[in-house]
């Protein structure tokens, strides 16, 4: 009786939790080697060779990883600084609600907002005009759809920083960092030593899995680079969808090649994060 229930649960788990992912992956693999798809007619590795030779995938991957990496590092640093500076003020009744507000802003809205502020006819461009810095809209520097992805990173940082502030505040309390700081001081540590030997190690040790997760989320994010990105290179998800969804049917298979590589990378990252997480929880 008891076992049957657990078995039904497991069956559903496989059906809903595992099967879609596996089917998606298998389909992408088949398509990428010419075994699925309307215009394909048999096994071939030429799509893989084409993707490899064009170098677009590697550029896109490096570009995505760079953007995601910089955004996460800046967000985590900013959030850490804000948390440590204002941990007491942010507990305040009114402020403790305000810091939750950014959670209500999705990527689409953040990207839209960036366009409103930083586009050539955006709010800051208008300020610049009235301050006499520029004479017409096109003199305003490229801050969105720009080669350095400033707009994308700014949107990411806007979304992610508040999340990390909440996270660090939470860990700060749960891990009793304030008490441990006092203890370290009574043992003769100065402010700098407390920061580098107590506060930062504790906060980062408890949160680095989530930091890793956010890197992967940003790496695969879609709507923000779709609105704020440029033609080339593109971030991974945008590139994959552009190739899969385009009218040139022969290009579709190349899109699936990139999708397969990306999926494998994410799965490896999952294994890595997951097993490291286990070892840290064991130790703690």
């Amino acid at each position: 009786m008891k076992n049957r229930r657990l078995h039904i649960g497991l069956l559903l788990f496989v059906l809903i939790g595992v099967l879609p992912f596996v089917s998606a992956f298998v389909y992408a693999v088949l398509y990428s080697v010419g075994l699925a798809g309307v215009v394909n007619d048999g096994f071939t590795l030429r799509f893989w060779a084409a993707v490899w030779n064009s170098g677009e995938f590697l550029r896109s991957f490096g570009y995505s990883a760079g953007i995601a990496g910089i955004s996460v590092v800046v967000s985590v640093s900013a959030a850490m600084w804000l948390t440590l500076q204002f941990k007491r003020e942010l507990q305040h009744r009114w402020l403790s609600f305000v810091i939750y507000l950014p959670l209500a802003i999705p990527g689409v809205v953040a990207a839209f907002f960036m366009v409103q502020l930083f586009a050539k006819s955006g709010l800051f461009s208008r300020f610049a005009y009235h301050l006499g810095w520029i004479a017409e809209a096109r003199e305003f520097p490229d801050l969105i759809n720009d080669p350095y992805a400033l707009g994308i990173m700014l949107a990411f940082i806007t979304i992610v920083t508040p999340f990390f502030v909440l996270l660090f505040l939470n860990v700060y309390q749960n891990e009793r960092v304030a008490e441990l700081t006092e203890l370290a001081e009574s043992l003769g540590a100065n402010k700098k030593q407390v920061l580098w030997r107590v506060t930062l190690p504790i906060l980062l040790r408890k949160t680095w899995t989530l930091i890793g997760l956010y890197f992967i989320f940003l790496l695969g994010s879609y709507e923000v680079p779709l609105i704020l990105g440029q033609e080339s290179p593109q971030m991974l998800s945008v590139l994959i969808i552009r190739e899969i969804k385009q009218y040139d049917l022969s290009k579709i298979s190349e899109g699936y090649v990139v999708a397969v590589i990306y999926t494998i990378f994410v799965s490896l990252a999952a294994v890595l994060l997951f097993y490291r997480k286990k070892s840290t929880t064991d130790a703690g």
């Binding site: 389909y27 992408a28 997760l213 992967i216 879609y222 969808i241 899109g255 999708a259 799965s267």
Partner: peptide, 11 residues
């Protein structure tokens, strides 16, 4: 962890 949009494209 996989981008939902990629999952959707493959499904």
């Amino acid at each position: 962890l996989l981008a939902p949009v990629v999952l959707a494209a493959c499904l």
